[in-house]
Write a protein that binds this DNA or RNA. Sequence first.
DNA 1: TTGAAAGCGCTAACAC
DNA 2: GTGTTAGCGCTTTCAA
Lengths: 341, 341
Amino acid sequence: MGKVITICDIAKEAGVSISTVSRVLTGNARVKDDKKQRIQEIINKYDFHPNQLARGLIQTKTMQIGIITADVCNPYYSAMFVSCEKAANSLGYTLLLSDSFGDRRKEFELLEKMISQRVEAIILIGGLVDELVTDTEFAEKVNLVTNQIPVIVTGRLDGTNCSRVNIDGNRAMELVMEYLISCRYKKIAFAGGSPTVKFTAELRAAYHKLLKSYGFSYNPAFDVPNEYYDENGGYAAMTQILKEKELPDAVIAVNDLTAAGVMRAATEHHLRIPDDIGIISFDNTYIAPLVTPQLTSVGYNYAEYGETIVKNAVAAISGDGVPHETLIEPVLAVRQSCRVR
Amino acid sequence: MGKVITICDIAKEAGVSISTVSRVLTGNARVKDDKKQRIQEIINKYDFHPNQLARGLIQTKTMQIGIITADVCNPYYSAMFVSCEKAANSLGYTLLLSDSFGDRRKEFELLEKMISQRVEAIILIGGLVDELVTDTEFAEKVNLVTNQIPVIVTGRLDGTNCSRVNIDGNRAMELVMEYLISCRYKKIAFAGGSPTVKFTAELRAAYHKLLKSYGFSYNPAFDVPNEYYDENGGYAAMTQILKEKELPDAVIAVNDLTAAGVMRAATEHHLRIPDDIGIISFDNTYIAPLVTPQLTSVGYNYAEYGETIVKNAVAAISGDGVPHETLIEPVLAVRQSCRVR
DNA sequence: TTGAAAGCGCTAACAC
DNA sequence: GTGTTAGCGCTTTCAA
């Protein structure tokens, strides 16, 4: 590899001091035009870009925000990351992404690593923040972090004062139930999701509440959790439901991947979707239109979601007040997995 | 935000010099046990982590590798990113991800940004490196970069001496054709993909060659490119094919997303998969088992793929020789979208 | 408008 | 084993 050039090399070649070069780099002070131009030419010639490490060291402004997700392979997380990335970029920030892969230890480590990399804020999406019962050790760790930089979370994190941005789970379930009922479904099951996950628990609670308020009886056999939020989890949950003598006429899946598994199990059981059974789910990721029939799903405005998170992060960096919790409105995307009303 | 503590604060509180603290931080020299312990306690108490910017500034070892992909929302890219991330982490490196979103300008900018962030190598996956005809301006830019740090690419980049890691496209198409023929398919179409993309061009060339070698005639109406590698692209390509009087009995889709679109078009045309028409595709991403029927697809060992890329990057960082091009063996994943042989 | 110099937080010689 | 000191590459006073 060739020698890495520095501001000194540029200064030497231009016959000026490094401060002058620095001035044209930052644009923070006036430099005589001819000098400026000469310097700029040399900069271009070498394709020189100032060392951000050195800059960050002085300014304590790295313009980097860390983001920790569970697994970007999951379409929900990749959608979240990309929307945050776009929002961050438009504000001049760069995102530093790491996956925790559901590894508790790794979440702790990543926090430390990001702190030492001097990101200016950390965004936590998925993982320990999703837990219904906060991991107190993790909350303590996060408190240590918030001592230095702001932390924005989705989910919750009791015992910390992180700013939170969340989906209105109650409203999401309302949209689902309203829609199913308008399609004349009467025996509505709920498949997948872990009772230890806050958002899922919120959905389940709303499911129970709405069932009651619509005058339907609650059938525990139609309410099947599953810890895996993927196709297999959905398949397993639905297989369980299909053992019943009396089957539901609609299934709410905890997310799109789960719905895909539910659909497979239903199809293998020779149920036609949506005539024999309606399927609906949450997240409206890009896989919803991929399955057959295309999946009706309650989603969110991801662009707005990411933007809100990043805006809160940047506001917190600037020391501005940030809402303790912001709720994102869910939106129903109607496709073909429920019968026409 | 509370004051960010430094090695000086730790040294002061421990009543030692900063070098002693540095020594326990790095572990590069012996420190008397009792002192070491006292220092460690203070470090823990404040949850202190040394500023990596300062470290990187001295050592020119940031332990960061940049990776530029087209769009992590795409399952192929997210799979690649995650496998690279795992490989990098296990070697002590952190990955710095940015998406170019198919924006040429952005690719140039990201290169510069990563250089200035002092990543030790850059991995390019998707985007301009995928072009059949290399963007010479981009190649020049990359040459400027390789002057400073190694660049590893998938695809190609003529006019540079970047190390390349690629899938053996010819072999991938061989696997597909062999399999289709073993399933007694005779009229084989190829749907989707842009002629300007190197890997796609490679697949198409192999498709033509193999058609001939199997004694099939080439029907241009069965060979329909589409610039969008998504469901819509597949749907459009298949719709085109379905206008013919004589239909194919099998369709090779350029990737899984395209296959999903092909499947939808086929189903809407009342063709049963796999009895009336077999579908097969490339990449074997996690969406292949999601669609109905589950998609037979030629994939790659992503773990190996990412590992090879990262290993080459790290070897190049260390100044070791790195193979100019490494080919990854494709693997057929048989599911239900082709009839049983 | 410019240059000299201090210093961001840390590591690594170099002395002791 | 430990402290002192010189930088890493840059920005930013402070003088001139």
